[in-house]
Simulated assay, not measured.
Amino acid sequence: MNLDDLPIRDDLRGKSPYGAPQIDVPVRLNTNENPHPPSAELVADLAEAVGRVSGELNRYPDRDAVELRAALADYLGHGLTTAQVWAANGSNEIIQQILQAFGGHGRSALGFEPSYSMHPIITTGTSTEWIHAAREEDFSLDPGKVVAAIGEHRPDVVFVASPNNPTGTAQPLETIEAILDAAPGMVVVDEAYAEFAREGTPSALTLLPSHPRLIVTRTMSKAFAMAGTRLGYLAAHPAVVEALLLVRLPYHLSTLTQTAALVALRHRAELLGTVDALRRERDATVDWLRSKGLAVADSDANFVLFGRFPDRRAVWEGLLARGVLIREVGPPEWLRVSIGTGEEMAAFRAAMEGVL
């Protein structure tokens, strides 16, 4: 028996699961992780905290993660309260809960591609129709075209990633506001890479007081260098959080996850202390790639999309053969490299020299 023999839903047939290649090579620059591991001090603090709660693992965790949500609200600022913040197992579960509450059979979600590939995957998984609209040649959004697409399709949920994955493109608040004014339902601004944005780039968090149907999602997997913790969160109107309580699984966020996230927030000065260095590496990578005559998308994230290659698979394989793994993702003829340490980026440049 194989998958085709099972009575799965018709809208799942022919689909492929999400997944970046997991290959053991010296330099892995394909999943947009922060390359800097936690310090010995943080590890010791985490071990002590986990040890402290381990004697209570026979009990369920705090169902509503109140302490963690309060700490996340404090980190985000903007006058946010615990009631306006929600947390789950990675921003993907946050997205799933949003679609369970506001999507579903007979409803639709719209996004602007190329963008985060999990948006349509989770949309389909929740029996929500996925509608894609196109970005401009430079991967920006034209407010007039965006408003027209929303007016045509009247989606129940609109996704906007800013900075966008895989292009790195951040959206001006004016564009976000145009979307909010036009959308009949919920608007989700995915800010997974917000901490990497260039100085002066505003967050959609500033729009929350005047837009009750806005949801801003974040993660601790990127700038916080805690991808293994699997902690995503959102900020929204308290009524939105109440809606998500209707669909969340009971005790969905383990005691260990909540504990690790709280430790990370206490150490945020250390963890976010690598952001400036990664920004510099990103900007230097953009300049270097352009000096080689390649097209490069402006990036406000911790990765760079570059091209254009008639046979991008050959370039990807050439880098892999030299011990460097990047991502074959996004529009045809383009590749994406995550920003690593200085040594890793030097290895990437050397491998690219060989491939070019």
Rank of each mutant, 00 (worst) to 15 (best):
N2K: 11
L3G: 09
L3Q: 13
D5M: 12
D5W: 04
L6I: 02
L6Q: 09
I8N: 00
I8M: 09
S16A: 13
S16T: 14
Y18S: 13
Q22A: 12
V25D: 01
P26F: 05
N30E: 03
T31N: 11
E33W: 09
N34F: 10
N34C: 15
H36I: 15
A40V: 15
L42K: 12
A44P: 06
D45A: 15
A47F: 02
A47C: 04
E48F: 09
E48L: 15
S54N: 13
L57Q: 01
L57P: 00
R59G: 01
P61N: 07
D62Q: 08
R63D: 15
R69C: 15
A70D: 09
Y75S: 04
G77C: 07
G77S: 03
L80S: 02
L80W: 01
T82L: 06
N92P: 00
I94A: 07
I95Y: 03
L99E: 07
Q100G: 04
Q100T: 01
A101P: 09
G104I: 07
S115V: 03
S117Y: 09
S117T: 14
M118L: 14
T123L: 02
S127I: 05
W130G: 03
A133I: 08
A134Q: 11
F139S: 07
S140N: 10
D142I: 06
P143S: 07
H153W: 13
H153I: 04
V157K: 03
V157G: 08
V158C: 12
N164Q: 08
N164Y: 03
N165W: 12
T167F: 02
T167A: 08
P172L: 01
I176P: 04
I179C: 11
L180F: 04
A182R: 06
A182K: 08
A182L: 05
A183K: 05
D190S: 13
F196R: 05
F196H: 11
R198E: 13
G200E: 00
S203H: 01
T206K: 07
L208I: 14
P209S: 00
S210Q: 12
R213K: 13
L214D: 12
I215G: 11
I215H: 10
V216H: 03
R218P: 08
S221C: 12
A223H: 08
G228R: 14
T229K: 12
L231H: 09
L231P: 05
Y233D: 06
A235G: 07
A239M: 06
V240Y: 04
L244H: 05
V247G: 06
Y251D: 09
L253H: 08
L253A: 07
L256V: 14
T257H: 02
A261L: 10
L265R: 10
A269S: 11
A269T: 14
L271A: 08
L272V: 04
D276F: 08
D276G: 15
R279L: 07
D283M: 12
V286C: 04
A295V: 15
A297W: 04
A301K: 00
F303T: 06
G307I: 02
P310Q: 03
P310M: 01
D311A: 09
R313G: 11
A314Q: 10
V315S: 03
V315W: 00
E317K: 13
P332H: 04
W334C: 11
L335W: 05
V337Y: 04
S338R: 12
T341A: 03
E343I: 05
A346Q: 05
E353A: 11
V355P: 07
